[in-house]
Structure formats: structure tokens, C-alpha cells
Design a protein around this nucleic acid. Structure first.
Lengths: 133, 133, 133, 133
DNA sequence: GTGGTCTAGACCACC
DNA sequence: GTGGTCTAGACCACC
């Protein structure tokens, strides 16, 4: 649980936590099947209230990103098997990003560079537990 | 207009043309401000129908890559200089794509693979027969 | 100068200030021609460094939103006279917002409601000097 | 398909049709999931060419309002339920439009006026001749 | 001259 | 059956 929240930023803590977890999961810091720290562990580690953590977890459960099993813990969900529909949706998303980026003055190469930076940032987090972005 | 389309490839002609033009513009064959060949010139050169050319051009207009001026011609749009605001917007877009892709079962590596395929696909299309206007 | 910045949010102060001023100007808190507080007044009022204010002002000058006249002060620029080109661009922007909003599940009526809230919020700021959003 | 187009209005037929369908969908004449009349049925009913209908349908597909399934038909898309994320995204979009419009010389009031015109324009088009399918 | 729209009619892929 | 693509050819608006 190598992340820190900013209680003064105006963004609710549970949303900050939710987004941070989402990002950590999406970038592979927590692979599917991994058990997340318990609500109480997280609350202690981040020095925030248990209810705040709970709210973040609950929303992620609702979004099918993690699953809570009473008495066992909370786990990262298996990601859906990319079927044809999902593949098409994915292609559409990528296509859209390319076009939107183009409109902002960025090329496909720029997108790739940005993504690779994300990966290496996430990798660093995994290995050394640093949390610099 | 040094490109040829493959009517047997299964890919619609207007899409082949659109992608070829996109690539030509992205690689500087047609710099910003350049006038493209007229729809009729292009149709004759590629031995396809004016409507098919029109369709390709219209889609590029919709994507803000070229601009058609009735009675004058079709021109390559200038791309904006990526300033700080655009950079932030761009980062947000990429971040969002990562999350959305995750929900569909795709990783950052998948996105990069898809993007690289886009680049090489565009390149392959134009490889035979230089690219002088 | 009824706004406060959050030095702990991670967003650079000069950007926070720039955005806050932009919003104030766009919503009519500072109409065209209005003189803005001097750089030093602003620095003192917000308890930030003169250089920080300067940077925010400089960027707004570069974006043609305000103009600095040496020895006189800084003023909100007259907005461009909406000519036919700008009108078309404006229509395109509105059209795009409608479509993007639709995709997110919001109707035209929702957009109008949001905008009217913005106006009344700005109005409140003008009259009573509150800065609640 | 109880609408009529005006071929003398100067507005292209495919746009008239597109807007009429958009309005019909937005007002619930065609709820999500409904199959639209086939392009050929519509062409016959409105006495216009199949290609013209196709063009209107294609644009609505591009805008994610309807979806065409080759061999099956054309259906009204479900709209997403606006959750918190979408709400935030929506707010950002509106905020951005305000700033961009300002740069073009338009105020929030101008935007609202434009939007209200959109609503009434869409309404006027369908007012004669009820709207049973 | 330029692009924009529309028609008539064909053939295809997918169901 | 359905939508998707393409052609040939026309007429228009704008320059």
C-alpha cells in the first residue's frame, strides 16, 4: 500500500483512494487474484478512517474491479476474457484516443511514449516500493 | 497522388484511401496548408468513383485533419502546438483509456501493441511507390 | 480577489491562479476592460510570491485574455467580435458538447442546468464576494 | 416513421432525417433497444433514396445513438447511467466549453441561447403529424 | 473551376 | 431478409 493521499486537495479521500487503487490495479501493481490489504490495514497505513477505506472498496466492488468475500478478504477480480465484442469496443477506444490526441497535437508515438512511462512507473512501484509518479 | 488501392483486399476503398492520406499527412508528404488533389483528380488518378473519394475526404474533414472549402479546394489543417493545457488534457485521455481498457480485459501492453500495429499498417500501405505529390 | 489557492494540492500555484482568473473572467466577475489587481496586490492578498502571480499573469497575456500595459496596469481584454468564422467554430463546439454529453448520459437540458448554476455561482461571487463554488 | 422532410429548405435531406430521428429517440418515440425501420422502408416511406437514408443512419451510428447490425437491422443504443465518474467528466466538458467559447467571444448566456435553439428546432421539426412508429 | 448532395441501381457480406 | 459499399451521372452552391 505504497501511496499517499492529500487530505487538503479538495478531492474526497475515498475518491483519491479509489482512483489510486484503480490505477495500481490497471498497471499491474495488483494483478488479478491478489488479495488487497484489509480495510483496517489500509486505514492504519494511510491514517484515515475505516469508513473512508470501506467506501472506496465498496465502489470498486460495485465496478467489478475487486471482490470482497466475507471472512476471507478482498481480491482483485479476474479481468473479462476479451471476446469479439470487447475487442471491437477496445479498438474503438484506441481509435478515439488516436484522433483526440491528434487534435491536441500528439502523435501515436507520443501516446506510446506516455504509456511506456506509465508501465515503468508502475514497475518501479512494484519493485522498490517507491511512489514517485 | 502516388498510392494504389487494392479493391480485392476486403477493406473498403474509401477507408484505404482515408488511411493512406492520413499517413501521407502525418509523415509530411502533405504539410499543413497544402492543397490536396481535387476529388475529381484523385478519382481519375486512382480509377475510382468521385463519390468514393468524397467519402474518404469527408471523413478526414470530420476528423479535423483536412478542411474542404466549397469552390476552392481541400487543404491540410494546421495542428495545434501542444501547450501545457493540451498536455494535461492528453494525460487525462491516456489515463482514461488505461482504465477503460482494463475494464474490457486489456492491459497497457495490449494498447501499445494495438498502436504499433496502427503505425506499421499505415506505413505498409504507402511503401510501394515513393510519395511525391 | 476573492479566491483561495491550495498549496498542498500538487497543482502548481500559478496554474491554480491562472485557472481561477480565467474562470472569473469567463463568468463575468471581471468584465472586459476591468483592471485586475496589480501583481503585488495579488501576491499579498493570496500570500504567495510575486513571481508566482507574474507567471500566471504572463500566461494569460500570452493567451490574449488579459493585457499588461507597463506603468498602467493589467486589464481584461475585449473579447473578439464574433464574426462568421468564430460563430461557426462556436456552433461546432456546442454541437460537440451535446454529443459528448449525450454519450455520458446527459441531455441538453442537463447542460443548460449546469450552465445556469455556473452563472448564479458567478453572480453570487460578484455580489457578496463569496467563493463557494 | 411519421415525419416529413422539406426538400426545398436548403438543409440537406440526410441532415433533416438525422435530426428528426435524433429528436424522436431523445423524446422516447424510439426507446433504447427498439429496431428502427430498415433503410429501405424509410426510403420508401419518405420517398427519398436509400443512400440518403443510409447516410443519416451512418452518422447516427457514428454518434453512438443507434447501432447497425449487418443482416439484422438498426437499433437504438442504450444510454449509460450517469454515475459519479461521468458526472465529473461532464463537468469538465462544460467548464472547457465555457473557456473555449469565451475565447471566441461568446458568453455562457450565448451558449444557453444556442442550446435552447437546438431544443426548439428539434421540437418544431416533429410537431406536425404525431409520432407513432 | 471547386466541393456537397442526391438519385438509381448494382453487388456484396452477414443473418 | 438486413446493412455496407461502390459506381455513374446529375445538379447545386460557392469561388
Amino acid at each position: 500500500m505504497d501511496l499517499h493521499l492529500d487530505p487538503t486537495s479538495g478531492v474526497p479521500l475515498y475518491i483519491q483512494l479509489k482512483e489510486a487503487l484503480k490505477h495500481a490495479i490497471a498497471t499491474g501493481v495488483y494483478p488479478p487474484g491478489t488479495q488487497l490489504p484489509t480495510v483496517r490495514q489500509t486505514a492504519v497505513a494511510l491514517r484515515i478512517n475505516v469508513n473512508t477505506v470501506n467506501r472506496a472498496y465498496t465502489e470498486l466492488v460495485r465496478e467489478n474491479i475487486i471482490i470482497s468475500q466475507q471472512g476471507r478478504g478482498t481480491f482483485v477480480c479476474a479481468r473479462p476474457q476479451p471476446d469479439r465484442d470487447r475487442q471491437e469496443e477496445f479498438d474503438r477506444l484506441v481509435e478515439k484516443l488516436i484522433n483526440d490526441s491528434y487534435a491536441l497535437g500528439f502523435s501515436i508515438a507520443d501516446i506510446i511514449a506516455r504509456l511506456q512511462k506509465k508501465i515503468s512507473a508502475a514497475g518501479a512501484k512494484n519493485q522498490q516500493g517507491g511512489d514517485r509518479q
